[in-house]
Each structure stands twice: as C-alpha cells, then as structure tokens.
Amino acid sequence: MSTDFTDPHLLDALGTLASRAGAAIMGHYGGAASVKGDGSPVTAADHAAERVILAGLADLLPDVPVLAEEAAAAGLWPVCEGTLVAVDPLDGTREFISQNGEFTVNIGLIAGGRPVAGVVYAPALSRLWIGAAGKAEAMDLPPGASIGDAKDRRTIRTRPLPPAGPVALVSRSHPDAATAAYYSDRGIAEQRAVGSSLKYTLIAEGAADVTARFASITEWDIAAAHAVLVAAGGEMTRPDGLPLAYGRADRQFRTDPFIACSGAYAAAGRR
C-alpha cells in the first residue's frame, strides 16, 4: 500500500477499516463502562475497535507510528517526528454509553505536523466521511461493510453564512464557560448540542458554521475530522488564526484551544 497519505486507494481502505471497527463497537452497544485513571469512561467497545484498527494499520501502514487512545492510556506512546496516524477508536464514549448515536471512529493521517487526510465514521448513523487534498466526501455505509458497498457517495463543502446568522455547535458532554462567552460575544444566537467529532463533519457538510473549544484536547480527538473539514473548505486553527501543531510528543499530544469553522465564517472575520 502506498505511503502517500492522500492516495484515494489508501483512504478507501481506511474507510473500510473504520467500518469494521464500527461493527466491533456496535457489538458492545449497551454494555457497561469502567473509568480510566484520568477519570474518563472506557468500555469494551473502545478496546475492541482499537484492536481492529491497529491490526489493519499494521497491514496498510506498517512503518508509520500510531498514536492510539487506549494504547496511550496504557503508557504506549509513539516515537515520531511529525508523521503518524492518530486513532480515536471510539470518540464520544459518553454518547455511546447514553446510546444517542453521536459517537465516531477517527483515523487521522498526520505529516509535517498537520493532518493531511482523515476518515471519520459514525457506526450508529451508518455514515462515513473522508477528506484529503482538497476533496471531502460523505456516504452511507453500514457497520462492517466494505466501502465498495457505500451508497449516496458525494462530495461535500462548507456553506455560505446563512442570512439569519451562523449556527454554532456546542459539545453535548463537555460544555464550558469560555465557549459560551465566545458565542455570546459574536452574537451567535442559534446553538445546537452535538457529541464527538460529528461537530466538525456537520460543518464540513454545510449543516452548521462554527464550533469552538478553549480547553486542551488530545490530537486523536480531532485530527481526522480536522482533515475532513479542511478538505471541505473549512478551517480549524487556534483562536488567533495560527495553525494547530500536531505530533507534539513533548506535550503528550495535547492541542491548543481552537476554532473550527466554515470557510465563509473565517472569511467574514468572525473568528
């Protein structure tokens, strides 16, 4: 398999891999959860999905370091120099536990300290997003299915700003005062609560315009969706407009605060 992270054949293979991880997740839907050392929840689904993804990456990208959430929780951090695969096998574990469907599988490909390609899969919604090299796609794909079985595969783009003003997405499980103040300062009236990396894919699809996070987050949480959003014409930057840096082993792969938005929102200077 080519090591070109924007190779469409590689991205399709990763889409199928995410679908198979989604099937592993759905096999544990409704199961019990435990608590990790950092206080966050974890389930058998998290571990099952990560096993599927790591096995697949060993075949597809055998020489690329992998940053994976549950491996990192066990103390297994990759050695890398700006090139790696960032894996969140189940983003939105709290949403998975509550069974609201708003959880995702995330595989982000990072080169030169930035996400250049990404695959995001929502197994409960049978929805897959892929983005790289200026092209983002969305499609319907049941858990466990090969990407060749995808339906309604189409190119997606962020939208113009609505006449009524931007629509903001807020975290369903992690609301914070700084984000609320950011929206208030910009007169953003309409806000919708959404879990996991679905926030960024919805902006990429043109269903919303902006989401902000002023607390640190881990690279595996956003790398894949960052790539999809940029490929769809959007942006994800620090609040001052500077790029987010990835591959930061020196800070255990924690990100800076960021604004994720449509191209139109950024062009209007709303940041």
Rank of each mutant, 00 (worst) to 15 (best):
T3F: 09
D4Q: 14
F5L: 14
P8E: 10
H9K: 13
L11I: 08
A13T: 03
G15H: 05
G15W: 07
T16V: 05
T16C: 02
R20E: 13
A23P: 01
A23M: 01
G30V: 10
G31S: 15
K36T: 02
K36C: 00
G37C: 00
G39Q: 03
A44L: 10
A44P: 00
A45R: 02
D46W: 04
D46L: 01
H47Q: 14
H47N: 14
E50D: 13
R51P: 01
L57E: 09
L60M: 04
L61I: 13
L61C: 06
D63N: 15
V66R: 15
A68D: 11
E70Q: 11
A71Y: 08
A73V: 03
A73H: 11
A74E: 14
A74C: 04
C80D: 10
E81A: 14
G82E: 06
G82L: 01
L84C: 10
V85R: 10
A86K: 11
D91L: 10
F96G: 00
Q99A: 14
Q99N: 13
G101A: 15
G113L: 09
R114S: 14
G118L: 12
G118A: 12
V119M: 07
L125G: 11
S126W: 12
W129A: 10
G131Y: 04
G131K: 07
A133K: 11
A136K: 08
E137I: 11
A138T: 15
A145V: 08
I147M: 12
D152V: 02
T158I: 02
L161H: 13
P163N: 11
A164F: 05
P166I: 08
L169M: 10
H174I: 11
P175I: 13
Y182G: 00
Y183F: 15
G187K: 14
I188Y: 04
R192A: 04
A193V: 06
A193R: 14
G195V: 05
G195H: 05
L198S: 04
E205R: 09
D209P: 07
I217W: 12
A223F: 05
A227F: 06
A227C: 04
V228D: 01
L229F: 06
L229I: 02
V230L: 02
G233V: 11
T237W: 02
P239W: 03
L244H: 11
A245W: 03
Y246I: 07
G247I: 09
G247S: 12
R248I: 13
Q252L: 13
F253C: 06
T255W: 00
F258M: 11
S262D: 08
G269A: 10
R270S: 04
